[in-house]
Design a protein around this nucleic acid. Structure first.
Lengths: 205, 205
DNA sequence: TGCACCGCTGGTCTTAAGACCTGCGTCGGA
DNA sequence: TCCGACGCAGGTCTTAAGACCAGCGGTGCA
């Protein structure tokens, strides 16, 4: 009778956490012992709930995934980094800090379950080719925004309110809100402030 | 019987506009014909209300003061730039674009009235020494934030919410809000997004 | 001693923001 | 024709944000 793998899901977006929980709960050998929305909560959960494997998003406001890894110092649970195309430049540093591997957030459920079992078994999820691919080239590609979303993001990055953007573009505020909601989801930002900072980092606007 | 000087006040902060109106209304030879909260409103007001002198803040989200000056192309009303210690690096470009002078926002009311009359009379408010002082040295000095305000601003610039900041600093959210309110006023930002962008530009955080 | 500044915190209130529901019309491609 | 993407816009609802009222205690300076 083997013990289930105790999992902690760490991501600042409830949608991502819920999505991961929804399919990880279907695996009989997984036990999701906690969720955390930021690094501090994650560290607390690691202390209290003693997960075997942490699914850790690196990009979180405040105490982020990298800080968690550094606080752990290679001790404790195995850490599987959740990343996305826009954030993969952080992965090498995370591996350096003790992560046992990484998966893309849009990985299919079976592959994710397999990745969890692999790191739990003490292996790492690193192939030299994959690491080289990650480290080659310049900044990560920006996610695909529609032309209008890019335009709205550019104006957010100039500090405009939705109302101002609506006026500038000659559309309703409701329409702007829709674009904002959509672009936030695409770039993985929780709010406009993060979106503005993202835009600055990625040379938008 | 001479005509009053028709004034347009352009600043995105209602507090600033109200403050200016409060003391300019006391001058018998001034007639405040309009206010505007951003560059587009300003241009519309210039077309409709035909001010003689525009008191123009350069730093506004969206269509800013510089854009207004460029759109005017040196035609139309005399423009007196409202600036603050943190924004004086924009003044030379504004003068280049046709502004007739500049005053600091914290100027005393009598001096402001005199400045308005001066530019209205066709003169400029530029002394070579003042311009040299503006253009010498590097980036403008940051306004004086308290240590705590700087700290909070740094965390805003990392995309944190008030709640997250409160947790990170070990204080109440109420306290964070107070610091935010105070620092927004000091740096002249209308909201946290603008504050974050300001911080990025000024190397805070 | 009085005052200003600082950090902390409570309260009330308004509103901008954002999530999530919906639907329409246009366009392009299978 | 159907479907997805896109842009536009309506609706409902929650809540984070921010303004502005207040107060406390500590510190430093005139």
């Amino acid at each position: 009778m083997h013990e289930p793998i105790r999992l902690l899901i760490v991501d600042d977006h409830p949608v991502v956490r819920q999505g991961l929980r929804a399919y990880l709960e279907l695996e009989a050998d997984f036990d999701i012992v906690a969720e955390a929305g930021d690094g501090e909560e994650a560290l607390a959960a690691i202390g209290e709930d003693e997960p075997d494997v942490v699914l850790l998003d690196l990009k979180m406001p405040g105490t982020d995934g990298q800080a968690v890894l550094e606080r752990l110092g290679g001790d404790g649970p195995r850490v599987l980094v959740l990343t996305s195309a826009t954030d993969s430049e952080r992965v090498p540093a995370a591996i350096e800090a003790g992560a046992a591997g990484f998966v893309y957030k849009d990985i299919d459920p079976d592959a994710l379950a397999a990745a969890i079992r692999t790191v739990h078994a003490g292996q790492t999820l690193l192939s030299p080719a994959a690491m080289r691919g990650l480290m080659s080239g310049g900044p990560a590609a920006a996610p695909e925004l529609t032309p209008r979303e890019s335009q709205v993001l550019g104006l957010i990055a100039k500090g405009q309110t939705n109302r101002q953007i609506a006026r500038a573009l000659g559309v309703s505020e409701k329409t702007v809100k829709t674009h904002v909601t959509n672009l936030l989801r695409r770039i993985g930002a929780a709010d406009r402030t993060q979106a503005a900072l993202w835009a600055v980092r990625h040379g938008v606007g």
